[in-house]
Amino acid sequence: MHITKEKASRHTLAVMVDNEPGILARIAGLFTARGYNIESLTVSDVTADKAVSRITIVTSASDATMEQILAQLDRLIPVHSVTDLTALGPHVERELALLKVSGTGDHRIEALRLADVYRARVVDATTTSFVFEVTGGREKIDTFITLMREVGLCEVARTGIVAMARGNASI
């Protein structure tokens, strides 16, 4: 007997929740307990009184599982709303990454040149290293990281995706 997997597509969700202890464990635990994927998860409070947090989750699931994920998230008591940005329509996705590159000579010059193309900023420098800050969609950052590997990349930190629907409507 072999175990089969269902076809999945990628969705970006915006989940508004009460900013209370344990909420992240509730969300993350729901995903593990029910066997859903998390590709990335970011969280931060977003209201003036710091009472509400926005969690952006990137997940991949079949259509049927996706419907379950939305319903299961909505069922959690501290959840205000769940929005499937991917299903909603056009939206902006951004991620920030910090990359540390070490080296001297040609590698160093090439790193700066690539950073310029990718609109990465230098946020720290020594005579043998740079830290670059780059923002963009996942693909751009993936590509930038791949390129930097060839010129001395030694450390990466990424925030994970944050996302927002285009247009004047808000959630």
């Binding site: 049927a64 419907e67 379950q68 319903a71 299961q72 909505d74 069922r75």
Partner: peptide, 11 residues
């Protein structure tokens, strides 16, 4: 009464 029960196993 639980929306997550709907379409969970059977559409």
């Amino acid at each position: 009464i639980d929306r997550s029960s709907i379409n969970k196993n059977v559409r």
